[in-house]
Simulated scan of single mutants.
Amino acid sequence: MKHMLKPVCIKVGLTLFAGACLCGGIQAHSLNGEKEDILNTMKSATRYMMDSVSYRGGFVWNYLPDLSRSWGEMEAKRTMVWIQPPGTPSVGHLLLDAYHATGDKFYYEAAEKVANVLIWGQLECGGWNYVFDFAGENSLKEWYETVGKSGWRLEEFRHYYGNATYDDLGTISAAKFLLRMYVEKNDPAYKAPLEKVIHFILESQYPVGGWPQRYPLRYDHPFEGKEDYSSFITLNDDVTPEIIDFLIQCYQAMGLQNIKEPIMRAMYLTITLQQGEPYAGWADQYTVTDLKPAHARSYEPRSVNTGTTVGMIYQMMEYYKLTADTRFLSGIPAAIKFLESQKLPETEVRKWHRKSDNPDEILVPRFIDPDTGKPLYVHRKGGNIYNGKYYIDQNIENTI
């Protein structure tokens, strides 16, 4: 029960963010002569976060004011460092932003500490897991066997894979920060770990162009009678779009010619992954052999996802702007038609008990059966991994 109680916490990113935003305003408007006070407050907050809150320069997400307990997506050990946002790379990005806003090398030196922590936690394969532990791999395994194993909704933490993840921007958020550190001053200290993660990304790409959720590939954690989904080609949480975005940044900033073809291969795959009419949207993940929609966690059924479809429509417009290839636009009308076809009648809207104030918005189911077009509403009963269960039906009431 205690893991569910989270008193008011220090939130990692926000402490520095307020100062960084104000500093940008200072340069534009002088803020009535308060610049010095704001800069002093900003630096004091950063010192506290780096010297007292961080562990060797690494962060999780939230902390009790006395630092006696801390959390990433789940409760964390003091020696743990969280990668997925808003964790350690997010702080690194913020410190670089503060350096640009102020010109104060103090923030760059703090960003260097964060970068060194991430390099320490980079896996041999070149990517990152959601989290690593300065106390060692046995300590991390023990966490997975206790805290992680108790995650009901957070099923991705119920198994220790020992590999890297693209989920929740884990590897990519760290990679983008190291890229920024490298191009900031062309510091060779960051070139080797950056090249290592680029090699990891290219090695983990499927020939067809997509990426799995985790790599090196593992198939040994089937769940509730379904195969391990971590090898499936993944769009969920912007896995493929974010990897493409990072590679484009590398191509632009470093001039790496060998990554252009993998970028293009991945971008054109997104056209192929759009489903045919009448359900012409995109799924969260796909089986590799036939590129068909696939399941993920127990509450993420094999489906076409309307939210993912909206995101991919925007991505298609971005890829068109990059390439001038109208094939990226060709599927958008069908995707919009599909979304409009899923508009729920007012009787269903009333059952959901929530309504938007925006008259232009429509309510649609999140998950759509790719074969029948029926909505797949997810429900749960119970309260933990021992008595809890997710189930799916066509009843919109009491969805999670």
Rank of each mutant, 00 (worst) to 15 (best):
P7W: 02
P7F: 00
I10M: 04
V12E: 10
L14R: 07
L22W: 07
C23D: 15
G24H: 07
G25Q: 13
I26Y: 01
L31N: 10
I38Y: 08
M42I: 03
K43Q: 15
R47Y: 07
M50A: 10
M50C: 10
S54I: 06
R56W: 06
G58F: 03
Y63A: 03
L67Q: 01
M74L: 06
A76N: 05
W82D: 09
P85T: 06
H93S: 13
L94V: 04
L94T: 05
L94K: 06
D97I: 08
H100V: 03
D104R: 08
D104F: 04
F106Y: 14
A115E: 05
N116K: 13
W120L: 11
Q122F: 13
C125Q: 08
F134I: 05
E142P: 07
W143E: 08
T146E: 14
G148W: 04
G148M: 05
S150K: 11
F157P: 01
H159C: 12
G162F: 07
N163T: 15
T165V: 15
D167T: 02
T171G: 06
S173Q: 08
A174E: 09
L179M: 08
Y182S: 08
N186H: 14
Y190H: 11
L194W: 03
E195N: 11
V197W: 09
L202K: 07
E203V: 15
E203F: 02
S204N: 09
P207L: 02
P207T: 07
L217E: 02
F223N: 02
F223P: 00
D228V: 13
S231V: 03
E242R: 08
I243F: 00
L247V: 10
I248M: 13
N258H: 13
K260G: 09
E261Q: 14
I263P: 11
M264H: 10
Y268N: 10
T270C: 12
I271M: 07
T272Q: 04
A280W: 08
G281N: 03
A283Y: 01
V288W: 04
T289P: 04
P293E: 12
A294W: 12
S298Y: 01
Y299D: 09
P301Y: 05
G311E: 11
Q315H: 00
Y320Q: 03
L322R: 06
D325S: 02
T326C: 07
S330I: 00
S330N: 12
I332E: 00
Q342V: 00
Q342K: 13
E348P: 05
V349S: 04
K351Q: 13
P359V: 02
D360I: 09
P365D: 01
Y390W: 14
Y391V: 02
D393N: 14
Q394E: 15
E397W: 06
T399I: 15
